[in-house]
Each structure stands twice: as structure tokens, then as C-alpha cells.
Simulated assay, not measured.
Amino acid sequence: MLKKFTCTVLSVIVALLSAVCVTAASKADFSIEKADEYFTLMNGCSRMSLKNYGSDDVVDVIAYCGLDFSSPKIMFYLSMFYIANNIDTQKMTADPEYSTQIINNLNGYLLKKGIENKRASEFVEKYSGDILVKKLNFSTVGAYTFRAKKSVAEKMLDDSNADFIIVGTGLVLKECDVNADGKIDIKDVKTIQSLSMESVGGNREDEQKFLIYSADLNSDGKININDATLLQQKLTA
């Protein structure tokens, strides 16, 4: 499972860093708004996914505490790294070993240039006693894969130092997988039936957005019995 999660977090970071590096090299303006929207959905999905676990369960977690891409210094070094290494962005998204090596090289390069990721350092220090097994550790880039208790993952989701926390199916967002268990079945129909806009409104913002994304099947901005009926029809078609 950790190996699968390692590839998952790499694919997210590769996509983000590739976009940033290309933008930095071309001196274009970089906007992370779309990335932030996706991160919000992933966090919301993780909140739903955690409801499938018991209070004492141990879960696989991906944490990303990214660098400050508004910093001209960081953007300069990213552009220099991209140009000097002739990075194949398509290969990065398709070849896990290649992407691992590139990110590892980038992590070391930024470290040598004196770049510090204080958010990542504070995050790891805060949870060092709660992380049970650490697998992936790119401290400057800010990417980590590990195992921790459900309660710890829940706290991490509210930590401002983390851009996103992935638990379960958090990366591969699926419309209709409302309970975020990786499957689309009758359980999702029942979850939609139990939801209403009032109950959704009482959730955290990221969870609200994920529920609208996954459960509003007829795209009317509401979650109600009509959405449950549509999903049931899809399952029996």
C-alpha cells in the first residue's frame, strides 16, 4: 500500500512542480488557484475516507507541505534546475522511477542552495512522535508518505502547514464515490440519501466541496433524493 501511495504523491507533486518549473523557465506568471481547488477536494475526500475507519485504526497518509512559489528566489532556482537537467515532463508523469530521481535531485539541489521549507520542518516536528512508519521523505520539496493513526490524520487535515493530506482514495477523485471508499456501489446511494444541503452545510468547507463534487449528479447545486435516484439508475443500467 505504501508503494502505491508513494507513486500517488509523486504524480501530484510531479504535475505541480512541472507546471511551476516550466512557468519559471518561461518567465510567465504562475497561479496556483486551480491547484488549491484540487487540494481542497482531496482534503474533503480524505475527511470522508476517514469515516470508513475505526477510531484506533492505522492509515496510510500522504502529506504535502509545499514551498512558497511566490518567492522570486525559489522560482529562479526552479527554472535553473529545469533548464540544467533537461527534464522530460511527460516522462515524469509516466515513469515513477524517473520522477522519483528527479524530485530527489531537486530536493538535494534546493537544499544545497540554502532553500529551507519551514512549513515542512514544523509539520514533521509537530507529528514526529505520532508517525509510525515513514516511507518517503523529501524535506525541502515538502513531500512525505507514512502511516499514522486515524486521529492523527484528522489533526493533520486542519494543519495550516499542509497543502493537502491524502488518505484512501484522495488523489483519484471519482464522481459518485461519495463515501470515498474507492468503490461506486449501493453504499454511495445510501450516503446520498442520508445527505441534505443542511447536513452538508454543517461540514468543513473542503468536505462540503467534495460532497457537492461527488454527490450532485444532476448538477443543480443541491444534494437530494434525485441524485440518489440517478446513481441507482446508473448502477442498475
Rank of each mutant, 00 (worst) to 15 (best):
M92A: 09
A162E: 04
F138Y: 12
N117T: 10
S26C: 04
E205Q: 09
A237H: 12
N203C: 12
Y82F: 15
D206P: 06
D36S: 12
V178Y: 02
M1V: 13
V14C: 14
L67M: 09
Y38R: 12
A228F: 01
V141H: 02
K34G: 06
V133G: 00
N137R: 09
A143V: 01
L2S: 11
D95M: 05
M156A: 04
S151Y: 10
R204T: 14
D216I: 05
I87V: 12
V9P: 02
A28G: 15
G129Q: 09
M42N: 09
I166K: 01
K187M: 13
V58L: 08
I131N: 07
Q232W: 00
I32Y: 15
I165R: 02
A28I: 09
V14N: 13
L41K: 05
V22R: 00
M156H: 04
Q208M: 07
T8L: 13
D185T: 06
L16H: 14
Y77E: 07
I103L: 15
N179Q: 04
V20E: 03
S79Q: 10
D227G: 03
C7Q: 15
L132M: 15
N218W: 04
S139E: 10
L50H: 04
A215K: 02
M92T: 03
I166P: 00
C65A: 13
N104R: 15
V59H: 01
L50F: 07
K126L: 12
G170W: 02
K135E: 14
A180L: 02
T100L: 12
N85M: 05
F146P: 01
T236K: 12
V61K: 00
L106V: 05
I212N: 02
Q101R: 15
S219G: 08
A25L: 06
C45H: 09
L136E: 11
V61N: 00
G66A: 08
A63E: 03
Y98N: 07
A228C: 05
Y127A: 03
K51V: 07
Y127F: 10
F69N: 01
K3L: 13
G114H: 14
R147P: 02
E154P: 05
